[in-house]
């Protein structure tokens, strides 16, 4: 038992040290800045719903300027306001779709890796089957089956990403399961759920964190692509992907329509990628130390 306590208390110290290291990394600072901006935008957005949906055929396709800082779209709506509104979907994708995939995928991976046998067989064959689909092909097929809309897009994205988590976690569990402390816990009779939660999961935290950041970036791209193709967020709700799509018809008359939401997507994806890189560097150093 002392062994177990020792691991938990020391892991807390390690976490604190890692956090300090991370905050000194420009990539982390950049990512956090982007996340804070998106979060603020998402919080503000309920208060400006009217502005972002108000059409006005008297001010179509205005370029950036006073009154409408980023210009207006093909229905005379304020691009800036819609950009702010689009943040909500991005937050939903990360919090709901990636969150669900993380939880479900991790649980499935833990069970498959630890229990083995038919559980492993069923979970992993399903995972293999789903992973065989190129990501967007599967997401498209699911959305086509369920019908377009933001909720179905979130489901599709969660379904597409879950097997990735399951496969990763299972692989890690397979190598952890034979470790001394797991064996020790099993021998003293710790119930399986507790064992997995207390003694296996914490060792996956670093890897999972990096992987989640990467999957979040994938998820944001997938939502953008679905909305771009018209299968994600529906009018008049704003989504960056859909805004890029509607702007492609007006590239020569008002470039702002495509470019600003495209930039927002780009920055979000870059933030997740850079965060993943930074986290990986930190955990790798930590591991080799």
């Amino acid at each position: 038992m002392t062994l177990i306590q020792l691991t938990t208390s020391s892991s807390r110290k390690i976490a604190a040290r890692l956090l300090r290291m991370l905050l000194r990394d420009w990539r982390v600072v950049f990512a956090l800045t982007v996340f804070v901006a998106i979060g603020c935008a998402a919080l503000v957005s309920p208060f400006i719903t009217d502005t972002m949906t108000a059409t006005d055929t008297g001010r179509l396709l205005r370029g950036p300027g006073p009154g409408h800082l980023l210009g207006t779209d093909n229905l005379g709506r304020d691009i800036g306001a819609r950009l702010v509104g689009g943040a909500v979907v991005t937050v939903q994708v990360v919090a709901i779709a990636v969150g669900a995939a993380l939880v479900v995928g991790t649980v499935l991976g833990l069970l498959a890796g630890y229990l083995g046998g038919w559980v492993d067989a069923v979970v992993m064959r399903t995972v293999d089957g789903l992973i065989a689909f190129p990501l967007l092909v599967l997401a498209l097929t699911i959305v086509a089956a369920l019908g377009p809309g933001v909720n179905n897009a979130l489901i599709a994205i969660a379904v597409v990403i879950t097997p990735q988590f399951a496969r990763l976690v299972r692989g890690e569990v397979l190598s952890l399961r034979t470790r001394d402390w797991v064996a020790a816990a099993r021998i003293v009779g710790v119930p399986t759920p507790v064992l997995l939660y207390r003694h296996v999961l914490p060792h996956l935290a670093g890897t999972l964190l990096v992987f989640t950041a990467l999957q979040a970036s994938t998820a944001v791209v997938a939502e953008g692509a679905l909305s771009f193709l018209g299968l994600g967020v529906q009018a008049p709700d704003p989504s960056w992907g859909a805004m890029v799509a509607s702007g492609t018809n007006y590239l020569s008359s008002n470039w702002a329509l495509s470019v600003f939401p495209g930039l927002a997507l780009f920055l979000t994806i870059a933030a997740f990628n850079l965060l993943a890189d930074a986290l990986r560097d930190v955990f790798d150093t930590h591991r080799t130390n």
């Binding site: 953008g224 992907g241 890029v244 492609t248 590239l251 470019v259 495209g262 780009f266 920055l267 994806i269």
Partner: peptide, 16 residues
């Protein structure tokens, strides 16, 4: 940059 730019944004940019 190239890892983070979605191709449905890069495509229209290249066209433009």
């Amino acid at each position: 940059f190239f890892l983070a730019i979605p191709n449905f944004f890069l495509g229209p940019l290249l066209v433009l």
